[in-house]
Amino acid sequence: MIKKFRIFAALALVATGTLILAPLQILSMKTGLWPETFILKIWHRLIARALGLRIHVKGELSTKRPLLVVSNHISWTDIMVLGSMVDVKFIARADMEGWPLIGMLSKLQRTVFIERERKRTSGEQASEIAGRMAKGDAMVLFAEGSTGDGNLVLPFKSTLFGAASMAIAEGATEQVFIQPVAIVYTRLHGVPLGRRHRPIAAWIGDEDLMPHLKVLLAEGALDVEVHFGEPIAFAKGSNRKETARLMEARVREMAQAALADPRPSR
């Protein structure tokens, strides 16, 4: 009964907030009355609160621009976690565009939707990402190309690091800064999540969204750590694959540190 009430209350909070904030975000996008991420950060925080996410941050988003933020990926909730804290825009897989609520939220923050399997469109997508970075948007790339179970960082795919190369080749900038970020779900109700239970937070592969949403809403009180690493400069002559491997190593190091010594719940 308590879990059912929690789900109902959380959904009511999100629905009410969305009815208020969505028109304000549309107004912001059309008029520029506020920065586009101002309303979105409130919206993300609302959803994070409804889910019971308790966010712990180490480090900070780089102020250097153009900026490509490279992160591991565990769940659709990663977007709420990052979006609630910092002014960023996202690079997401194409099918997310049609998801209820998440798709609408993504469109309202000008997410770049990519089709990883269609090589014909990869150049256009990289060009759009490059253009957005050149205009000052900090773009978030979930570089594994899929979601993991939270225990391991999957190999990073180097393809979309090509957006950094393209921004330089097109003359939009002389260099792009690339910053590693690790997202780690560490505790449930204050108790450390072990290897066996950490996948509770994970949304993997073709798993349906609604069952996973209900689990998170029913449980609540999930701690997540976000670790920001030091950015590196990617310039003409930099190797895309080597950069992808370096970012993968740094994200894995930060993730393992968070898993080994999770911060106390609050």
Rank of each mutant, 00 (worst) to 15 (best):
S146T: 15
G145L: 09
M133C: 09
L152M: 12
G123T: 14
Q175E: 12
T121D: 13
A172L: 12
K157W: 10
A172D: 11
K135Q: 13
R120E: 15
E174R: 07
D137L: 03
K135L: 10
A167M: 02
S165R: 09
E124K: 15
T147I: 01
P180H: 02
K135D: 10
N151H: 01
A130L: 05
G171Y: 05
A126H: 04
A126I: 11
T121K: 12
G150P: 00
A169L: 14
G136Y: 03
I129Q: 02
V153W: 03
E128S: 08
R132H: 14
G123M: 14
S122F: 10
G162F: 09
G145T: 05
T147R: 04
G145K: 07
P155G: 08
V153L: 01
A163R: 01
A126R: 11
I129E: 03
G150L: 02
D137S: 04
A138S: 14
I168A: 11
L152P: 02
I178K: 10
M133F: 13
S122P: 08
F161Q: 06
F177I: 06
L160M: 13
P155A: 10
G162S: 08
S146K: 15
N151M: 00
A164V: 06
Q125K: 13
V176K: 08
D149R: 02
Q179G: 12
A167C: 01
G131N: 08
Q175V: 11
T121R: 13
I178R: 10
I168L: 11
A169M: 14
N151F: 01
G162R: 08
G148V: 00
G148A: 08
G162E: 07
A169E: 15
A134Y: 07
A167W: 02
K135W: 06
G136E: 05
G145W: 06
P155V: 10
D137W: 04
V140G: 04
G171I: 04
S146R: 12
D137I: 00
A172Y: 14
M133L: 10
P180M: 03
S165V: 06
F156C: 09
F161A: 07
A163H: 00
F142C: 12
S158F: 14
R120Q: 15
S146G: 11
E124M: 15
E144I: 05
M166F: 11
G162Q: 07
F156H: 06
A126P: 03
F161V: 07
P180Q: 01
L152R: 13
V153H: 02
A143H: 05
M166E: 12
T159I: 13
A163K: 00
A134D: 06
M166P: 07
F161R: 06
K157L: 14
S165W: 04
T121S: 13
A130T: 02
G131D: 09
T121L: 13
